[in-house]
Design a protein around this nucleic acid. Structure first.
Length: 447
DNA sequence: TCTGGGGTCCTAGGACCC
DNA sequence: TCTGGGGTCCTAGGACCC
């Protein structure tokens, strides 16, 4: 059973964190009925690292990192040394010499993340998945079956612990924004409930960067006008925020600080674009480098577009140079595409344009392709010319048809034998810094 | 806190149309 | 001929999220 602590007024985030392990935090106040706090935010703790510690008991209690050249995820023990996701492995080892690197059971991450979301779905169909390890749930409609939200949250935590063996933190509040802050406060392995009457007290002393939408840049801008806490933000006039951050961000932030968050839990969110990128280290800006790399990126994107029957009209490429400055170029086509060879060629042309416009840049460090303006239908079999010169890009042309047939064959092989059974251009990307495709696939959203 | 990868949303300027 | 205004789409870049 979770211990119960009752806190009357304001708590700093760091004080909250001290209570966090398995604490059931009640914020009590008068007025509002408790029944309105029905939004749950559930977040698996240090997810990938926890899975590894689950599989190998000798790793429990130790600082571990999933990955090698790059830290993909770190356990809490490793985070205590300052190890963070995205950090180069070498730097992580300097911070924490006893750090253990583990390979990563990527298929199991997907399976266990899905299983945790399924636990939420056993209580309510109103579940919005944010990423592999995180989801919102609205339990307003199921309290008559399962009891008050606090009990549901406790039951979810117990089930994920006993059935999957994983720690999960849950925040409960009346809005998504507040529930998310609460789950962050609950970490690791805790539960925080924010009752409506006290929501503003709960918020006021927390630092602004805990709010959704406040990153390093906005934090610094706010600090310039003396705003450091959410309370101070709430007292800042709207026009002042608008002047500082622009109309959209200013108004959104002002509303959130007053705890006005109209967003509902949405079950079916579809992505509006599909991206793929690859860090190259430092490579010469030459055709022999970027052509195979772009082919591989186009393959990853287009296989997803075809699977979901959502071709796209806008192609954007991004080229990052050695100094980490990046430049993007895009083109919007008359008709949507999902054919690998066509996307690869368009991307190549855009990259050539970028390089021609930056003749002094001899080294590139990253290539990315994005396809947006997605449409809700299969790529048309017979279409007018795309407005680009090459005859073979016409889907109805002979070469166009041959290319679709090639894609179809690739898709079929992958259906049967898995994604790695066949592919293009991956050899060119096989540097030690590169991240496994299996890891990238975990971050993909439903198109 | 020097940099991995997949996403979302916003802004600002320009083209073009009415 | 000049001037104004609004809407929509496109392009490039940036901030932010996990």
């Amino acid at each position: 059973m979770d211990r119960v602590a009752s806190i009357e007024k304001t708590l700093g985030i760091y004080e909250l964190a001290q209570f966090a392990p398995r604490v059931y935090l009640l914020l009590v106040n008068e007025e509002q009925p408790e029944t309105t706090a029905t939004i749950l935010h559930a977040d698996l703790d240090a997810f990938y690292a926890s899975v590894e510690q689950l599989f190998d008991p000798s790793l429990r209690g130790k600082p571990i990192a999933v990955g090698g050249g790059v830290v993909l995820a770190a356990s809490y023990e490793a985070k205590a040394y300052g190890v963070r996701g995205g950090m180069p492995g070498r730097q992580a080892r300097e911070l924490c010499p006893q750090l253990v690197f583990v390979g990563g059971h990527f298929q199991d991450y997907q399976r266990l993340g899905d299983a945790a979301v399924k636990v939420l779905n056993d209580f309510t169909p109103l579940v919005e998945r944010i990423s592999i390890d995180e989801a919102f749930a609205d339990v307003a409609g199921c309290t008559h079956l399962f009891g008050p939200p606090a009990e549901i949250a406790g039951a979810i935590r117990r089930r994920v612990r006993t059935e999957l063996g994983l720690p999960i933190s849950v925040g409960v509040a009346c809005t998504k924004h507040l529930a998310k802050i609460a789950s962050q406060a609950a970490k690791p392995d805790g539960l925080v409930i924010v009752h409506p009457g006290t929501k503003l007290d709960f918020l006021h002393d927390l630092p602004v960067e805990l709010m959704w939408g406040v990153g390093p840049v906005t934090k610094a801008r706010l600090a310039d006008i003396g705003v450091v806490t959410i309370g101070q933000l709430a007292r800042t006039p709207g026009w002042s925020l608008t002047r500082l951050l622009g109309p959209a961000a200013g108004e959104k932030l002002a509303a959130l600080a007053r705890n006005c968050d109209p967003r509902e839990v949405r079950t079916h969110r579809r992505a509006g674009s599909a991206d793929a990128q690859s860090a190259l280290g430092r490579k010469p800006a030459e055709e022999r480098v970027f052509r195979p790399a772009l082919r591989h990126l186009a393959d990853r994107i287009c296989s997803r577009l075809r699977t979901s029957s959502r071709p796209g009209r806008t192609v954007t490429v991004r080229v990052r140079f050695a100094d980490l400055r990046s430049v993007s170029r895009s083109i919007t086509l008359d008709a949507p595409i999902s054919t690998t060879a066509i996307l690869a060629e368009i991307a190549e042309e855009l990259v050539r344009t970028v390089l021609a416009q930056h003749p002094c840049e001899k080294t590139i460090s990253l290539l990315a392709i994005s396809v947006s303006n997605l449409e809700e239908r299969p790529e048309l079999q017979l279409e007018l010319p795309l407005g680009l010169a090459d005859e073979s890009r016409r889907p109805g042309s002979e070469r166009g048809m041959a290319r679709r047939a090639a894609d179809g064959a690739v898709d079929t092989i992958r259906d049967r034998f898995g994604w790695d059974a066949v592919g293009y251009g991956s050899v060119a990307l096989g540097s030690s810094r590169s991240v496994p495709d299996a890891f990238r696939k975990l971050a993909e959203r439903d198109l």
